[in-house]
Write a protein that binds this DNA or RNA. Structure first.
Lengths: 349, 349
DNA sequence: TCATACAATTAAAGCGCTTCGATAAATCCC
DNA sequence: GGGATTTATCGAAGCGCTTTAATTGTATGA
């Protein structure tokens, strides 16, 4: 054993310079001559030196970590929607030399002991929150003076940075496509209608219906209050289709999970998708590929959302005066069989 | 501002004791009188003091982190199988005051720059690896002298600790159930047959067939070399059912993804599941709930696997002489419709 | 009663880095 | 040409903790 891991002092000695100078090189500071810089870099490479994060963090009082917060029900959801966002985060964080600490939390801040340890221990330099979350968490983090970025959520009361997708255009794309397929009676299925993304999708739906001069009655907008899962989709579909004189021939669902629920319900009624009812979803989750018929949907760039969140967050961390930003990724229509059209991708213009 | 975060010195002052004593209390060391201990704890509570991880890590030369390594293709898989394992890891790690750093890696160690930063920087005290991984990674980690635990994989050459599930019993449960349903001709569908879990499932399948005195020909064992995904399942099913005089009436698939592929193929041939072909899978992934008919399968406790891995890893970290352990969680049969039986759960005895 | 052991507490020396202020050398301007 | 700047390098302090060895206090045994 004995041969122990090289420290900055070893690098200094090897290169014939001082520890401080090596540190300057390490941190890409100015006022280092090119020769010096390369001498140091050579020594670093020779020794296979890697700075110890703990020492760096202690001296510079930053943690080098980013916290990623998810509510428990989001993460335990079967669909890897948030997983993919997290993956994007992890990838992008590497480019900035940050580690990502993921944790799940309950719906709202209760006891101190439920607060993520990385917050209590000041072990993150900023926080990314994905999906719906109680505003008490936003306040908790604000109080700690940590920069934060929301992903696919918003809190008007908190004027917070966020990254999201272009829900409005996505909904319009979906409706537009159904119209192109000849549908004139289109319904909407949704849940958790206060969620900004869902609300925006409904708004886009209505707007495009109006624009296309297509019949879209309020009674064809079926909202299940209890959530946005498959079961909720099935329930909303039941509400939409049962006990009505007239039903729509096409449905735009606020997300894929509900769209799948809708398809299940329609099939359970011995009706055919897409022949009797065409269905379009939103999110492009994997399950849409395994449902029969395969789901036409609006694609969301999940990894990109995560990466974007990191970039915004790092900007805030580095900046003295962080600006509140709102960034939206574009979406595109993915045509499969559930809408009764030929396959293909329709990009948003 | 100004009011800055309390340090151990503040706690020492407040409690009228020395920094060293506070440290002893913090670390639950012996030789501290009960009165002293409670005085310190009181001060800690008053000040809302939390030790700074970086300082601790620097002084005690441990990182307080656990690395979680996944190959890229595992993580980008749609199915949240590994996500759930990770979640279990994260949960259990909290109990031991560890942070989990997740990263994905390529199939084998190539350049130094592809090595996870937490390894290069010695920023983890141990490593959990989930799923199939190139043995060069195991060597890389071994060389660094880090304790490690594999989840759902094995490397006979490396004599490494692992946690897995009882694949053998699971396969036997599945076959046993099919026999109980009256099937006498049972096929097997699998992929990546060198994977220890898959191989064990095949072994269990054969053993139970023999035990039940049921016909199971080698030509009814259809292996797709290219993987264990849905497509591979469909392809293996094609190989199994096409161009044969006699085909089995039931299939045990090595995992749910392949089972779903198999169902898709069977349906594409205008045959009925379970009437013409009964199908049983393994893993109990969510997608099995959304396929039609819903998939009968063998449940694997994914979160528990992750938690278990943490426990084993922490034992190794704390121990001077880490023992190599192999731990297996029990499985249970979950009966849904794809096997043509009534629903229910059959536990392994 | 005095040396001995043991328990409880502490002072001080780091852990490996960053950063501030000092120093020395090079460049500038009138 | 000489004081004022600027640039490159370094010494040393300190980040907040752990840990070792030393110190003090108290109980033990002969």
């Amino acid at each position: 054993m004995s041969k122990h891991r090289p420290t900055i002092a070893d690098v200094a000695e090897k290169s014939g310079l001082s520890v401080s100078t090596v540190s300057l090189v390490l941190n890409n500071k100015t006022n280092v001559s090119p020769q010096t810089r390369s001498k140091v870099q050579e020594a670093i490479a020779d020794l296979k030196y890697y700075p110890r994060g703990n020492a760096r963090g202690l001296a510079s009082r930053v943690s080098g970590n980013i916290g990623f917060i998810l509510t428990e029900d989001h993460f335990s959801q079967s669909e890897p929607f948030y997983t993919k966002i997290f993956l994007g985060t992890e990838f992008e964080a590497r480019n900035y030399n940050y580690y990502v600490l993921l944790t799940t939390v309950g719906p709202s801040v209760k006891e101190e002991k439920q607060i993520p340890r990385f917050l209590l221990e000041h072990n993150v330099d900023g926080v990314i929150i994905a999906g719906r979350i109680g505003s008490s968490w936003l306040e908790e983090i604000n109080e700690r003076g940590l920069p934060m970025v929301l992903v696919d959520f918003d809190s008007p009361r908190h004027n917070v940075s966020l990254v999201g997708m272009d829900n409005h255009s996505g909904a319009r794309l979906a409706v537009q496509h159904l119209c192109r397929e000849g549908h004139t009676k289109i319904g909407f299925i949704g849940g958790d209608i206060k969620h900004p993304s869902i609300a925006a999708r409904l708004a886009g739906f209505r707007e495009e219906c109006k624009f296309q001069k297509v019949e879209c009655r309020r009674e064809w907008e079926s909202i299940d209050e209890h959530g946005t899962g498959v079961e909720n989709g099935a329930r909303a579909a039941r509400k939409l289709f049962l006990n009505r004189n007239q039903i729509p021939t096409a449905v735009f669902a606020a997300n894929d999970a509900m769209a799948i629920g809708c398809i299940q319900f329609v099939k359970s009624q011995k009706l055919s998708v897409p022949k009797d009812i065409a269905v379009v979803g939103f999110d492009n989750i994997e399950a849409g590929l395994h449902v029969d018929p395969r789901l036409t949907t609006v694609n969301v760039q999940k990894e990109e959302l995560g990466a974007l969140a990191v970039r915004r967050l790092v900007e805030m961390i580095k900046s003295e005066t962080p600006a509140v930003t709102r960034t939206f990724t574009p979406v595109e229509l993915i045509v499969r069989e559930s809408c009764g059209a030929k396959n293909g991708v329709h990009h948003v213009d």
